[in-house]
Amino acid sequence: MSMYGQVFVKNNQYKLKGVFHHLTPNTPIRNADDGWKLMGVTNPRDMTYIHSYGGEAIFFESLSQGKLLATRCDNPDCETSGTIYIPFRIHCPDCLAKNTVIDLTDIAKKTARVHTFMTCARSGAFNLLDKPIRFINIEFDGVATILMSYLSIGDPTIGMKVVPIFKTCGPTFTILDLSWVPKGTGQGQLPEGFSF
């Protein structure tokens, strides 16, 4: 039995394997200033959620294959037809028609630049990125939106040209599989598991 909960889908139903929660006893909370009287209890809980990416699954799968996908409204009757979205939008926010999936990798490699950034010395619990985290928000030519991601190498500046890198070796299948480095960075400098 695996110590981690694992899931696959068969006949459009979830099939579960392994342990999905770990039992930890609760303990009393007592008042050290008042004769150790009872004030409450701890409630430990360790759960694994089962989350569907739905129509965005193709985006996260593609990151592990070194591709950055976006979507575009191609509805000729939509007043914002032709608008390109990344983050990936399954449906056009205006006409609600299903968007066309497009490969944005080349445009990203040629035109991505930092719109704004920040360096984060702390994170919330359960965060997996190394500190400090260098958040960057990225503009692309011809794209209506500004993608949030993180820079793996160097110090960000507004307007800095960056290129995407992908965790193709040992992917997590999350947004963390996409990162960025300054244009001109060599393959040998990339973090473990990442490639252009």
Binding site: R122, S123, G124, N127, L129, M148, Y150, I175, L176
Partner: peptide, 10 residues
């Protein structure tokens, strides 16, 4: 939760 929260959780 898919696009932003994992980036720092803060």
């Amino acid at each position: 939760k898919d696009w932003e929260s994992p980036l720092g959780h803060i």
